[in-house]
Design a protein around this nucleic acid. Structure first.
Lengths: 192, 192
DNA sequence: ACCTGAACACCGTTCAAGT
DNA sequence: ACCTGAACACCGTTCAAGT
């Protein structure tokens, strides 16, 4: 059960983010949670921004795992749907982590974007399989994956901040919009 | 040319945001730019968060105007495309304002979301017209507008932070994804 | 009604010193 | 190699006082 300080600092920062938002993530509080002094983080990270970047990197990897599991093994259009829904669910469960992970990070690294690319490979593979089964249009799989991710991301972000049309008949949850898009895409295959 | 202090404070904050990111927006610097002391803002806003919320509100209104103009008067699918491209263009030109406006705001107000709703009415109207011309599927116009806005928003946000697939043949700019979506949606009309 | 200057608590960061 | 305590500059906020 013994964890190294570096890992504990990242965990402490993520928990503080969940509980009180970005403003409550101070190095003093992070240190206290990890059982070290308020400037011990500087032995593991160059700055606070770098610690936050490490939180984002870990979160990206974990989300990737969650999406992996939620695909359910089977390679169908339903798997694409489940992965996108899992993405939205993760954003809703950890809004502050979501915002940190995909927001502008001063301490960002080239390594980060590579990891982000890793987490997309599953989606690209699922999309490719769905295309061969004529369940998605036969465009470049990477670009189709970008389209799907962009919609899921945008819908989640807008909903999280109350900018999605929320009244009356036109009301739609992020998951609804994902389902709408998949339906339209499938319909457009038949038209070609 | 005389502007009231409140308006100057908002302008100063927005400019600082553009030039140095959120970290450089301090009340001391805002005050200096507006020609007042570092705590004069408290006579116009309850807190720094409220000042930032005012910046976001103004930005939302301005973006709405920009989108209005870019629709070009004509009510066609091309107008929908232009409005969505204008949204992306605004995000690219003022990334920090974009992030502030649509990010989580502690000083947020109910009024804000109403304004956001106002800025969407144009898009909903354009979508409704395009639907009648069989250029978009005949779903609820509000929900279709959400789908389009969510994609434009997500594509812009991901691209801004380097999370959009950026290498090889699958590379797509936010504008490309908007065009892709409009094409698929139109194709799906023919399939029904 | 609007503004100022001093003051307070808090934060990120640095540094000398300890093991 | 990792950690601590004191110190520094800076920031949001408050307050007494001025017009």
């Amino acid at each position: 059960m013994k964890k190294d300080t570096r890992s504990m600092l990242i965990t402490a920062a993520a928990e503080l983010l969940d509980q009180g938002g970005p403003a409550s993530v101070t190095l003093r509080e992070v240190g206290k949670r990890a059982g070290v002094s308020h400037n011990a983080p500087y032995k593991h990270f160059e700055s606070k921004d770098n610690l936050l970047a490490a939180v984002a990197a870990r979160e990206l990897a974990r989300m990737s795992e969650t999406m992996d599991m939620s695909s359910g093994g089977k390679v169908t259009i339903a798997a694409v749907r489940r992965v996108l829904h899992a993405y939205i669910d993760w954003a809703r469960t950890y809004p502050a982590r979501f915002h940190l992970t995909f927001g502008p990070l001063p301490g960002a690294d080239v390594e980060q974007k590579t990891t982000a690319g890793e987490s997309r490979k599953l989606l690209v593979a699922l999309v490719g399989a769905a295309q061969k089964a004529d369940l998605l249009p036969g465009a470049n799989a990477d670009r189709m994956a970008s389209l799907l991710q962009a919609l899921a991301h945008g819908a989640a972000d807008l909903a999280l901040n109350g900018h999605l049309s929320a009244t009356g008949k036109g009301r739609a949850e992020p998951e609804d919009l994902v389902d709408d898009l998949l339906r339209y895409l499938r319909a457009s295959v038949r038209a070609s």
